[in-house]
Amino acid sequence: MNKLILGRFFPGESILHQMDPRAKLLAGVYFILVLFVANNWQSYGLLWIFTLVVMYLSGVKFSVYIRGVRPLIWLILFTVTLQILFTSGGKIYLDVGPITVSNFGIISGIYIFCRFVMIIFISTVVTLTTKPIDLTDGINALLKPLKRLKIPVDEISLMLSISLRFIPNLLDETQKVMDAQRARGTEFGEGNLLRQMKTLVPIFLPLFASSLNRAEDMANGMETRGYQSGEKRSTFRQLAWKRKDTLCIGTMIILTFGLIVLRTGGFIH
């Protein structure tokens, strides 16, 4: 559980920490889209420079980002391998039945690897530098237009923020239940898979029961404080768009132009 970097927040004072969550989210999503403009080593080089500078600005150690990539590395390598094995064209090094290893394949494999890693790096930057609650506020603000389509945006973001707020409680509780079971002689992580799964049942049942109780308390508490879904609510946490945020969007536009200039027509050169 503690190994998962994606989705974690690292407190800090960097320029990225001070930015508006909306700007970060927009820039993050935009970066993923603009990635696909790049098609040669020059444009990929520019993207790498951008990514590394952003990572440096976050003030978080590089090793943390590497740890963020680690859980996904097999998925990435699998995709890259497929790309290498099934792309033909250019100089062919190996040709066995449907499998061909060509220089086109190798190059596009490398590009796909770069894309994956950069997407992970940039989205990790966003989550590492933004408090979960700010992130939900940002998502809420950006999804506002969907309200016209009768999508309950406020409710969804409140649900998100309440779930986030209960994660530490649930982890604490899991620990407590596990300790209680240990005190009764249960050994976790022992024996074959079936036995290990069996030891989880007495953890999940009390957890479910207490979650339901919590939910009821929560609902009662919210109702007595006047919460009505669908009713217009004001917000206490205010988002402030600052110069930094405009600057960030500006940087994204410059990056786009840079990529368009550097990219070459055609497929791969």
């Binding site: 609650i133 923020s161 707020r165 308390d217 508490g221 919460y227 009713e231 206490f236």
Partner: peptide, 29 residues
């Protein structure tokens, strides 16, 4: 006010939680 306050916190900071009831009645910032 209930017996167990823990299960009623909506906000992730003290002030956010205190403001929750006020947000519900759509009070200006």
């Amino acid at each position: 006010v209930f017996q167990n306050p823990e299960n009623q916190f909506v906000g992730t900071t003290v002030q956010d939680d205190v403001a929750f009831g006020l947000e519900n009645i759509n009070m200006p910032y």
